[in-house]
Design a protein around this nucleic acid. Structure first.
Length: 474
RNA sequence: GCUCCCAUCGUCUAGUGGCCUAGGACACCACCCUCUCAAGGUGGCGGCACGGGUUCGAAUCCCGUUGGGAGUGCCA
């Protein structure tokens, strides 16, 4: 059953850090789109060799985050996760082979000694001091790769041909003084054993690539296809970092961004689908994405544009889907009403009117809270602005009278308020304001008369009177 | 410092020597629509970093300058 040939094997190799970086998400998506389209595999490898970064729940976080953006571990294209820490013996074995073959050598210089030599000679980095000292392994001795003379040519699918003079590359460390393998080695050995054919990763790894390519060759294998995609940057044009920037995918999810919008937006950073619009379904992306088309320069991760995409996606949902998507934002501790006050039929009635007014799902509660609370949460700025003049006070009084016996439907309510306003010389825009603030607590919100209809006469009149009382008292 | 990468509206991009008087999207501005706020519609602002080549012709090719960025660990 073993196929004679297998499709391309892509890999995504994050190190667990406790959150999932949006840049990592984009890289994963690039790999995923290619693996899917080309009938290959997406191999997930958790690079957990740094003891400090090794917690089981973080791995689950990565798998959950990937699933959220559509990279599902139960898809046949998905393979893994593998854990780098399980392959430590392979890494060491490969290093020892390199030593046996003379392609690596031991060195007993301490970092301080290296620095001193460097300072004395005026040259940067390690100078190859132990190359011909024939040292054997021993505690405190690192194993270094013997960088050959010549030139290393990296053929990169997005950058083209990149040349490195080997003399500019120092004999880098394969095994630490305590015998543990370094990232470069572990990474290559794992890629070899996992038969990775395409390494698609962020541009920051490009300077490492000649070293890795030498390792592939020294290990007797043909290097993979390389592709280094531009990094994501902030407004200062610096690489997105967790210290300065909001980079956690989970956080965007928690703030009410839709996975589809996030995925679509991420894919347009460094790449664009054909045609006049960047809003395209994943099926189009999967069919059209090419590494050769990826831009070469860093892309600014623009929250405003992400928000615009999110708004588009929210509006494109049919109402039922929208209602379902809102559910998590309509209950829980963050919501100002008690669970027993929430009424799904009321929300359902308002849903369509809410849908065009939000950019993230997290904004939903603010637009509908007054429907579930006994009394609205009054925004004082709205209150002061609206009731700062006598007309507004009169309008409030008048509306109490008028609404007491108006037929209770949105259209009739609108007509009634409009008429009441006319008697006071107010246009509808001005006339509805006092009613809106009294009933909803804010100057802005969903269409008022539909909301009044849903709330019902008693609740509306109660609120209008409460507002009048407050005005009388002040 | 050294190595490498990059350079089209403010931002993300289309553009692969003539179709470019450089197209779209986000943002911004104006107008329309309108019960607030949105959404929607129409229009507007705004760019090939600079200098040399190559060519009949250059945003597109070459060189240089300038400006950004990444890497530079016994981190990953």
């Amino acid at each position: 059953m073993t196929p004679v040939t297998e499709g391309p094997r892509f890999r995504f190799a994050p190190s667990p850090t406790g959150f999932f970086h949006v840049g990592g998400a984009r890289t994963a998506l690039y790999n995923w789109a290619l693996a899917k389209r080309l009938g290959g595999k997406f191999v997930l490898r958790i690079e957990d060799t740094d003891e400090a970064r090794n917690r089981p729940e973080w791995t689950q976080g990565i798998i959950d985050a990937l699933a959220w953006i559509g990279v599902h571990s139960d898809d046949p294209t998905f393979e893994g996760p593998y854990f780098q820490s399980n392959y430590a013996a392979d890494h060491v074995a490969a290093a020892e082979r390199l030593f046996a073959e003379g392609r690596a050598y031991y060195c007993d210089l301490t970092p301080e000694q290296i620095q001193e030599r460097s300072k004395a000679s005026g040259k940067q980095g390690y100078d190859g001091y132990s190359r011909d000292r024939d040292l054997g392994p021993g505690p405190g001795r690192v194993l270094r790769f013997r960088v050959p003379e010549g030139m290393t040519i990296v053929d990169d699918l997005v950058r083209g041909r990149v040349e490195f003079a080997n003399e500019t590359i120092e004999d880098f460390v394969l095994l630490r003084g305590n015998g543990s393998p370094m990232f470069l080695l572990a990474n290559v050995v794992d890629d070899v054993t996992m038969r990775v054919s395409h390494v698609v990763r962020a541009e920051e790894h490009l300077p490492n690539t000649p070293k890795q390519q030498m390792l592939w060759e020294a290990l007797g294998h043909r290097p993979p296809v390389w592709a280094h995609v531009p990094v994501l940057v902030n407004e200062q044009r610096k690489k997105l970092s967790k210290r300065r920037d909001k980079v956690a995918l989970e956080q965007y999810r928690a703030e009410g961004f839709l996975a589809d919008a996030m995925v679509n937006y991420l894919m347009t950073l460094g790449w664009a689908p054909q045609g006049e619009t960047e809003i395209v379904p994943w099926s189009r992306i999967e069919a059209d994405f090419r590494l050769e088309d990826v831009n070469h320069s860093p892309a600014f991760f623009d929250l405003k544009k992400l928000a615009a995409f999110n708004g588009e996606y929210i509006r494109a949902m049919d109402v039922e889907a929208f209602i379902d998507a809102c559910a998590p934002w309509l209950s829980g501790d963050a919501v100002p009403w008690r669970a027993d006050q929430f009424r799904s039929d009321v929300f359902r009635a308002m849903a369509e009117l809410v849908q065009t007014r939000i950019v993230t799902l997290a904004e939903v509660p603010n637009l509908v809270d007054f429907l579930f609370l006994d009394a609205p949460i009054v925004d004082e700025a709205s209150w002061d602005k609206t009731f700062g003049n006598a007309e507004a006070r009169s309008m409030l009084e008048t509306s109490i009278d008028v609404l007491a016996d108006t037929p209770w439907n949105a259209e009739a309510l609108k007509t009634a308020v409009e008429a009441a306003g006319t008697t006071l010389g107010l246009k509808l825009g001005k006339a509805q304001a006092p009613v809106r603030v009294a009933v909803t607590g804010r100057t802005i919100g969903p269409p008022l008369f539909e909301a009044l209809e849903i709330l019902g006469r008693d609740a509306v009149l109660t609120r209008l009177r409460a507002a009048a009382d407050r005005l009388a008292g002040s």
